[in-house]
Amino acid sequence: MKLAASNITHRYGPLPVLDDVSLGVAEGEVVAVVGPSGCGKSTLLRILGGLERPDAGTVATEGAAPARSLNPITYVFQDFALLPWRTVAGNVRLPLEEHTMPESERDAVVRDALNRTGLGDFAGAWPRQLSGGMRQRVGIARALAVRPAILLMDEPLSALDGQTRELLMDDLIALHASGELSTVYVTHNLDEAVRLADRIVVLSRRPGRVRAEVRLDRPRGERRAGDAALVAQARDLWELIRADAAAADRELAR
């Protein structure tokens, strides 16, 4: 399944946040959206999944979702968005409860999702007992449990410390190894973008416009943290947005 946003324009009151942004993600592609803070990246992601209505422009899917997909367009959130009153397994089970299926199958899906994210031993733990990295793994397990066709990830590693981020980055790369998941990955971290993406869309400062698109040809599996080529790419990206980021930094919040 493909997802395409065309000519998205959006404002919050008098404040324009997105200006005529078009963005598509092809089957199995990982698109990273980067830009200075306040450029509307997260707003764009919310619009892509129907969580927000744009002032102008359209979002459409192309092609059918796999028959077994319970929630074709699925989010992974920056703040994890786990229910603190549900256990790890209960959080993964939550979206499955909306669908009629035998209880045994639901259990199996939950167990499988937890095992895939290394959470098999933590099914009965409360979110507050988990580290940030483990909480985001629960968020990823919950997303996998509904078998998405398109994954929308909103700064999924931004709330984590550097070491945990590195560990989860490996998990995310493994997750995309099968090439079945289309992903839009919003981040302000350029290193994450060059590690993970097939294509990087650079947005300008507010109001966000598409400023550049960079295609990365090297297979994800061959990229290593600290590779000279990756570092150079990240630096090039930084040169692209540096002036915008500096200007955004000096803007008064509204």
């Binding site: 999944g49 969580l51 319970l70 929630n71 367009i73 699925t74 989010y75 959130f77 703040d79 968005a81 229910l83 939550l94 979206p95 409860e97 909306e98 919950r142 509904v146």
Partner: peptide, 21 residues
Amino acid sequence: RSLVRMGRSFGLSSWSIVRKI
């Protein structure tokens, strides 16, 4: 509200969101 947004994004019904979130 980010929990409610999560519920919506996973297709939970309004009644489920009220009851479970």
